[in-house]
Simulated assay, not measured.
Amino acid sequence: MIAWHDVEEGREAEYLDWHSHEHMKERLAIPGFLQGRRYSVVGSGPQFLILYTVMNPDVFTSQTYLERLNHPSDWTQRVMPALRNMNRSLCRVAASSGFGAGGCLQTIRFSPELGREAHLRGALTSEAQSLTHQRGVCAAHLLIADKDRSKAPTRETALRTGPDAVANWVLLVEGYDEAVVAQDRSGLLEQSGAGPDIIGDFYRMDHICF
């Protein structure tokens, strides 16, 4: 699961405490959840980026996970209405290379041009492998969202101020050299078959939990 969002002005400290001291612990207690991360934006873009890694996509439709979403804690009920501009995307990992988690991360959201999906996927699979041999990069991943699963209504989603957006394809580049990780890769994506609406954002890690 990858999510980008803002937080109501003046409630950032409360949000950070809730996310670190309750939300990540709560999620990682659910069978199949392996890792949680939170990042803060550098420059413009959504304020926060959240990543949860699970064993397989079926974890997101498991009874335990849905039970948690439909019975949010008192603290969650107070914080959720403060979240703004939520993009919450449940994804399959289409390609992955490298290992470990970098202290900085670039997320690139895009959609494939019609008829060029296979070519784009192959090009980005090769690019992910190439990126992890570069100085300053430790891992790269291609994610493809499941829009139906991402849009399933729950009590927790109803607490937010508007409907969640869902990404289509996402390229993640993470590492330890900010200049290398943050490089503009939109030209490569366009040449390989991505549409013109490419959104790149850059983040630094706040908290990682296993």
Rank of each mutant, 00 (worst) to 15 (best):
I108T: 13
G102W: 11
L131C: 02
R160S: 13
A128S: 14
A167G: 06
Q134N: 05
Q183D: 13
E190I: 09
L124V: 07
F99V: 08
S150F: 00
G122D: 15
E113A: 11
L171C: 10
E127T: 12
G193D: 05
A158D: 10
L188G: 04
A118Y: 09
D148A: 07
D146N: 09
A167Y: 12
A158I: 07
A152Y: 14
C138A: 09
H133T: 14
L188A: 07
G102F: 13
S130H: 14
V181N: 07
H119D: 15
Y176Q: 10
E178M: 03
T132H: 09
S111T: 04
E117F: 03
K147I: 02
D177T: 03
L171T: 09
A167E: 11
R160L: 12
R149A: 03
G103N: 05
T157D: 10
A118V: 12
S130L: 13
P153N: 02
R135I: 06
D146A: 02
L171E: 05
T107I: 01
D177V: 00
E190H: 09
Q134G: 06
T154W: 01
E178W: 00
I144M: 08
L114D: 10
G100F: 08
L189E: 06
A158R: 15
P153A: 00
G103Q: 13
G98S: 06
S150V: 01
G162E: 15
L142Y: 13
L142M: 08
S130T: 14
L120T: 00
L172I: 13
D164F: 13
G103P: 01
A145G: 03
L171I: 03
G103E: 08
D146Q: 04
S97N: 12
P153E: 00
R155V: 02
